[in-house]
Each structure stands twice: as C-alpha cells, then as structure tokens.
Amino acid sequence: MIELRRASLIRNGRILLHPVSLCLGPGLVTAVTGPNGAGKTTLLRVMAGLWRPSEGEVLLDGKIPGAADRAQIGLVLQESMLYGGLTVRENLRFFGRLYRVPDLGGRIAALAEEFAFERRLDDPVARLSKGYTQRVALARAFLPAPRLLLLDEPFDGLDPGMHELVTEGLTRRVQNGATAVVVTHDLDFAGRADVRVAVNRGRVNASFSALGAGSANERRPTQGPGHA
C-alpha cells in the first residue's frame, strides 16, 4: 500500500528524518512510538505527502501519488483540521464535497453514529470538548473511506469508553483492507500492533510482531509482510 524508499528529510542542514525504507501492506496496523520531538509526526507528514522528502521517495500503490490518489489517505494530525466557526455538520459537508464523497448525508450520519456525536452535529466545533473534537477529526479523516489511515495521537483526549470505540472502528477498517499508521504513546495499543516502529532523533527502527525482530534502519531496507 505505502512504501518509503530511502526517504529522508533535511531542513536547515539538520537531518530530521534519516533515510528510511519501509513497506506497509493492507490489513496491517503499525504503531509509531518514540519520545517527544523524535520525528514521529515528521514521518507521518512525509508519508502523507505534505512534506516532500529531501531524498528518496514515497510511493502509494507502487507509484508517486497524484492529485486523485490523495483521497486514499485519511489524515489526522494533532490539530483538529476543522473550522472552529462552522458546525460539525458544515465541516463534514465541506470536506465531503471537497473529497467527492458519494451519498454524503448518509455517510455523515453513519460516522456520527459510529463515533457517537449525532447530538452535537449542529454545534460549532469551537464549542466542542477535546474528546468530541477528536472524534469529529477522526470522522473527517474517515469520510472518503480512505485505504491508508495516518493518525497522529488519535486517542488523545478520549475517555476509556471512547478509546475502545475508536480502536474498534480502526480494527474494522483494517480488517476490510485498510493500512493504518498510528503515532501513539499508548503502549498497550502499540503492543497489539502488527508492526512497531520506534523513532528516535530522526532514526526509524521497525520490528514485526508477525515475523519476529527485524530492523529497518538506513542500511537494511525492510521487506514488510505486505511486500512478501
């Protein structure tokens, strides 16, 4: 699904991301862990195509993604990516039209039910609590039924019940063939993930719970299970 080929990011002469090769196939949950400022979010943004890698490339389904392929990516950042002045429904309608989501009304209703915010649909986003905002942010990312989910701290601000709900939603989508990359501090979630990626000061080390230990630093490109 997504493949990084010796992708690196250098800014102002600083190496923010050392060359990393990684291939993640469908049906896999990848947990990205590491200390603050290690480059987890950087890795996610490079994967999303928001930052062009200084060297190497990021491939989606084996090719460099064009405009139309961007709808395959569901992105959640630490910021909500929503307009505070619009209501939840207006936000979702706006992004749904932008992402050309068919049957938008039904889709919004279904997501609102799944993440339990039907009753807040007509409230301005600025007035939502952190937990609600986070769920709407997830719903926004899931609108076009993306096949690659890039989630930065998706459990942030969620109570245990909601945490469960979001994990379930994520698992269901992965079982249906999506690829999920989740940046998280939640070690419990990371323990259950198929692939664990540890990032430390811009260096990426991956290990696969399915295949035993392996390493994906700059010298040894990894053969991910999706690749095999």
Binding site: A48, R70, A71, L75, L77, E79, S80, G84, L98
Partner: peptide, 16 residues
C-alpha cells in the same frame, strides 16, 4: 481561518 486548527492541510489533501 485556515491556520487556526491546520484545516489548511485538509484542503491540501483534497483530491483536486
């Protein structure tokens, strides 16, 4: 408006 909550990135990810 675009920068408050990085909604701007949402626009950039649109398939247009």
């Amino acid at each position: 408006f675009e920068e408050e909550q990085k909604a701007w990135y949402g626009l950039l990810m649109a398939p247009v």
